[in-house]
Every structure is written in C-alpha cells, then in structure tokens.
Simulated scan of single mutants.
Amino acid sequence: MRDSASEVAGIRDAVHLCIDMQNIFAPGGLWATPWMERVLPTIAAIVAHHEARTVFTRFITPEDPQDRPGQWQSYFRRWQQATRNHLPPSALELVPALQRFVPPAAVVDKPAYSAFSNPRLAGLLRDKNVGTVVISGAETDVCVLSTVLSAVDLGFRVVIVEDALCSSSDVGHDALMTMYRTRFHGQVDLVTAEELAEFWHE
C-alpha cells in the first residue's frame, strides 16, 4: 500500500542522488540493464528540474583485481573484462543524456556498491545542509539498495522514485519495493516521478 500524500509531502533540503547511470549499464554495455532506456527519460526530467541539486555517482572499477580488498579481488577476477585494463574509458562515463547536465550537477566516483563508499559524498551533502536524499538510478537491488541502507544509517530521510529505477531482475526489483514499504516505514518513502514533482519545491 502506498504511503499517503500527507506523509510523503514536504520534500525540502534535498539532493537528487542518481546512481550509476553509466554506459557500462546501458544497452550494449558489458553489464547492460534492460530497463535503463525505459527509465532514462524520467530520470532526465527529474535532473532537468533540479540540476544544481543533483549528484551523479559512477561505479569505477579497478585497473586490476589486486587493487581492491578482500572478496572484491575474486569478484573482479571473475569480471576481468570490467577492469580498467580491459574496459574502454567511455564505458564508465555517464550516459550522454545525463552527462550534459554536468555541471551544474556534480559527479562522485565510488569504488563499491554504496554511493557512500566514497566519503566525499557525505561531506558534500553536509555542506549543502541536506536532510533528504531523493534516489534514482541503477540497479534497484544492488547499488541502489546499498546506497539506501547507508543513507538510512547516516540519518538521511530517503525518498525513492520508484519509476526512475532500473534493474536486471524483475523479481529483485519487486522484492525491494515490498521491503521498503513494509520494513522501513518512517525512514524510506516511495513516490512516483509525478508525485515528486508535486512534493519537491526548492
């Protein structure tokens, strides 16, 4: 059941955190996410309304698996093609439809799933006096999930734009939407892009 409008209303002191909308996840990319093309116009519309309040993240792979700690080494040995020794640099860039917003939108690179794995992000949000993060991007059940949980732990209010997310897994996406509604009430709100436009006024 959707949160009531009165509970979701009043988005302020917010930043739009757009997760990993990069060429590597676009059609034809090594880790292509089938839904990306479908949600890209929605994400671009959100950014267009909040350019200076948008932060894009990029998942930056290592040059070599040994450059990362622990289990990341075995992960990138399995995905050698995704290391920067093998990957074209353009693969890690934002998709062109979003790159054009930078600047004034900011870009934060990260070495792991969560956007907050780069400590620069938390500092940037504090400098902007941010209380709420509005989240879109890829993938619902990996980097978006990790970012949402980190944001909750750090005390941010989290607003997820559910029609501005993409995943490789319908099952994973649907399971996460259910989890947010049933387990994170009061910390995580789900809205559509249309509702976001109604509730978020800078």
Rank of each mutant, 00 (worst) to 15 (best):
M1Q: 07
R2D: 14
D3P: 01
S6Y: 09
S6D: 11
E7W: 04
E7R: 12
E7M: 12
G10P: 10
I11K: 05
R12S: 07
R12N: 06
D13K: 13
D13H: 14
A14H: 02
H16P: 00
L17F: 03
L17P: 07
L17T: 02
I19L: 15
D20E: 11
M21E: 00
Q22S: 04
F25K: 08
A26L: 02
A26W: 08
P27A: 02
G28C: 13
T33R: 04
P34C: 06
P34M: 03
W35D: 11
M36G: 03
V39I: 14
P41C: 09
P41N: 10
T42N: 03
I43W: 02
A45S: 12
I46C: 11
V47F: 01
E51Y: 00
A52Y: 08
T54G: 03
T54K: 02
T54D: 11
V55F: 11
T57A: 01
R58V: 07
I60P: 00
I60S: 00
E63Y: 11
D64E: 14
D64I: 13
P65E: 09
P65Q: 07
P65L: 12
D67W: 06
D67Q: 15
P69Y: 05
G70T: 10
Q71N: 04
W72M: 14
Q73P: 12
S74G: 09
Q80K: 13
Q80R: 14
A82M: 10
A82Y: 00
T83V: 15
R84Y: 04
N85R: 15
H86T: 02
L87N: 05
P88H: 11
P88M: 04
P88Y: 12
P88Q: 10
P89G: 05
S90F: 09
A91K: 09
V95G: 07
V95Y: 11
A97D: 14
L98Y: 00
L98Q: 03
L98G: 08
R100Q: 12
R100D: 01
R100F: 02
V102S: 05
V102Y: 05
V108F: 04
P111W: 05
A112C: 01
A112G: 06
Y113N: 10
S114G: 09
S114D: 13
F116Q: 05
L121Q: 13
G123C: 08
L124Y: 13
R126P: 00
R126V: 00
D127T: 09
K128T: 03
V130R: 02
V130D: 08
V133Q: 03
V133D: 05
G137N: 04
A138G: 06
D141T: 10
V144Q: 10
T147D: 09
T147M: 00
V148T: 11
L149Q: 14
A151E: 02
V152P: 15
V152S: 14
L154S: 08
L154G: 03
L154D: 14
F156D: 02
A164E: 01
A164Q: 01
L165T: 04
C166K: 01
C166A: 15
S169H: 10
S169E: 13
V171L: 14
D174T: 13
T178L: 06
M179P: 00
M179N: 01
Y180E: 01
Y180A: 02
T182E: 15
H185E: 13
H185P: 01
H185G: 10
G186I: 02
D189A: 12
D189W: 09
L190V: 08
L190A: 03
V191W: 03
V191E: 08
E194A: 15
E194Y: 06
L196H: 06
L196E: 12
A197K: 15
E198N: 06
E198M: 12
E198D: 12
H201G: 09
